[in-house]
Simulated scan of single mutants.
Amino acid sequence: MNDKGLMRECIAEFIGTAILLAFGSSAVITWMILGEVGTYWEMSLIWGLAVAFAVYTCGGVSGAHINPAVTVPLAIFNKFPWKKVPYYIVSQVAGAFAGAAFTFSMYFHIVADHEAQNNIVRGGPESVETASIWSTYNHAGASFMHAIWIEVLLTMILVFVIFAVIDTLNISAPQGGHAAIIIGLTVAAIGGAWGPLTGFAINPARDLGPKIFKFFAGWGEVALPGPDFYFIVPIIGPIIGGILGAFIWTCILKPYFLTDAETAPEEAVEDIDKEGELT
């Protein structure tokens, strides 16, 4: 393993995930506290655009996984090296931490004013409201297991789409690097359709990194482990869902594209990218 090459990839994953959190969490503040973003759909669209920005800017270096629920399935189904997986995941969590800190550094006074005006004591049970700016909680009153199930399904959809649009065998997928837009729109659509159920984490790093930051920024146990140890939900659910989504594409749907392999160009039936890149 090339240490310099891996370092570049980890830096790219760090930056890409930081971009995701910086835009996404700022959008939550402008929607939830300032009222400048009008609807949940508009806020979700900003999250989706942030994903597209991250893929376009960092994808050429690391593939811009920016999500352990993407990295792990790529290792299982698409020959991404397992030895890189822990480095990618640590970089993603660290990037999410940095992105949350970036947003906090810009909006901390607005968040503090909102807490003071609404008698919210940071670190108290009621501070889940402001803690949810950066990471997810169960907003619909569903049970712990139901919340995991929701995250499984939402991440399954996301990763299924990712695997479909980056596969060169899929001739209906966007060409020329435009998969980033489709992936971003998929994130936005998931948020707009089902986001209020669990906050659509669909990404363990995007949730855990900010929770670690909030733990040190005054939210304490409200951040980690969170009410009823909720932090487990956005870790387990997305990983399982990501593997399922990749399995559905790779093992159930993709083989139908191979039935006419004799007439298909050789390059079309090769694996999309032996290094598991998204672009």
Rank of each mutant, 00 (worst) to 15 (best):
A140G: 08
W82M: 13
T103Y: 10
F23H: 04
P73Y: 03
P227V: 14
D207C: 01
V159F: 12
L20T: 11
G241P: 11
S44R: 06
T57Q: 07
A147E: 07
G192I: 10
E277G: 12
G124Y: 04
F53S: 08
V72S: 11
P210E: 00
I148E: 15
G35V: 02
A173R: 09
F53E: 09
E151A: 09
V159G: 08
G176W: 00
D167C: 01
D260I: 13
L6V: 15
A52L: 07
I133A: 02
G191S: 06
G276F: 06
M7E: 13
F14K: 01
P73N: 06
A54V: 11
G95W: 00
W41K: 05
E115N: 05
I235S: 07
V37C: 05
T57D: 06
V90A: 14
I76S: 09
I171A: 14
L258K: 14
I272A: 07
I248E: 09
A75T: 08
G220Q: 04
A50E: 07
I202N: 11
A179F: 10
D207R: 03
G195K: 10
P196R: 13
N118I: 02
V152D: 14
E42D: 10
I166K: 03
I182C: 08
T103G: 09
L185A: 13
S91Y: 00
V90I: 15
P238K: 06
Y87H: 15
L153A: 15
V70G: 08
G276K: 06
M106R: 14
G242A: 09
V165M: 10
L208M: 02
F163G: 09
I89G: 10
P238N: 04
I157T: 14
A96R: 00
I120N: 01
N2R: 14
A142S: 14
G124D: 07
D167S: 03
I76M: 12
E262I: 12
A246M: 08
C10P: 13
K254I: 11
I212T: 00
Y137E: 05
G177Q: 11
D260N: 15
K4I: 14
L185E: 11
C58R: 07
V90S: 09
I19G: 09
P265R: 02
E9D: 12
T279A: 04
A147M: 08
I243P: 10
I240H: 03
L74N: 14
V61T: 05
G191I: 02
G276L: 08
E129A: 03
Y230S: 15
V121E: 12
T259Q: 14
A12M: 04
A246K: 06
F160D: 05
Y40M: 07
A246C: 07
S143K: 08
V93K: 00
A100R: 01
P225A: 02
F108S: 15
E36R: 15
F97G: 03
F23D: 03
P68M: 05
N119R: 04
I171M: 13
V55D: 02
T250W: 08
W134P: 02
V222F: 00
F108N: 12
I133T: 04
L278F: 06
F97V: 01
G237C: 03
H109G: 10
L74T: 13
I182T: 13
A101E: 07
A173Q: 12
C58D: 09
A180S: 12
S26K: 04
Y107C: 06
N138C: 11
M1R: 14
A98E: 00
S26R: 05
F102E: 04
